[in-house]
Amino acid sequence: MEQASWALRIFVFLIAFFVLWKVVRAKAGRELYLRKIPGLEKVDDAVGRATEMGRPIMFNPGLVDLSIELFCCLACLSHVVRRAARVNTNVLVPIAYPLTYAICEEYWKDAYALEDKPGLFSSEESIRFFSASQAVFASSTSGWMERDRVSANFLWGQYGWESLFLAEAGQRAGAIQIACTYSYYQVPFLIVSCDYTAFGEEFYAAGAYFGRDPVLVGSLAGQDMSKLVIFLLIVVGSILAVVTGKFNWLYMLLYGT
C-alpha cells in the first residue's frame, strides 16, 4: 500500500478482521444489537404519508459519485423504493453523475421487481440525470420537486451549499423531509429546514439499520469495535503524552517513523 506505515497496514487488517468476525457471528444467527436512530425511524411513516396524499416521493442522493457513500445511499434507496412499491407510490430520483445514474437505475428497477411490480413506473420518467454542477442540480431538482408536488423528500447523500436550497423547495412543496448526510458543514442547514435529520456515521449505519442484513449489521458491529480501538488509542496516547511528551513511542509507531 502506497504511503502506508506498518501500523496502518496492521490497523486496516484489524478492521477487516473485526468486520469479518462480526459478519460470521451475525450469519451464524447471533442477534446483534443496534440502537435506535430517531431520524431513520420515520422513513416508513414518510412513505405512508406520501401514499395517503397520492403524490410521489423524492429520494435525492445529492452530489454523491461512485464511492462508499453511494453504496450506503443505494441501500437506503432500495429500502424506500421497496416500501413505496408495496403501496404503488412512485419514487423520483435526481442524479448528478452519469455513473451514479446507471447504478441507481439498476437498484430502482430491482426494488420494484422484488416487490413484483417491475413496470409500475417508468424509470426514464422517475430517474433524471441533471448535472454535477451544483447550481444546475439545485435549480433543476427544486423545480421538479415543486412541479410534481412531492409529499416526502429524502435528502440522502452528499451536499454542498445547495442543501438549504433543496430543503426549502421541499418545504414549499409541503413535503415531509428526512435528511441523512455525511456532509458535515451542511448538517446545521438540514437540521433547521428538515423534519428529521441523521448525520455523520448514522449515514453509514442506515443501510444496516433498514435491511437488518446479517452482513451489513455484522460489518457495522465490526466497525464499532474498530472505533473502540481508536478510542483506546486516543486515551492511551493522551496519557502517554502527559507522562513522556507528545512524541512518545505510540505516536512514533502510528506515525510510521
Binding site: 486516543i234 496516547g237 493522551s238 502517554l240 503524552a241 502527559v242 505510540l250 502510528l254
Partner: peptide, 9 residues
Amino acid sequence: ITSTFKNVI
C-alpha cells in the same frame, strides 16, 4: 488519531 494525542497537563 495521532493528532488527538494531547498533553493535558
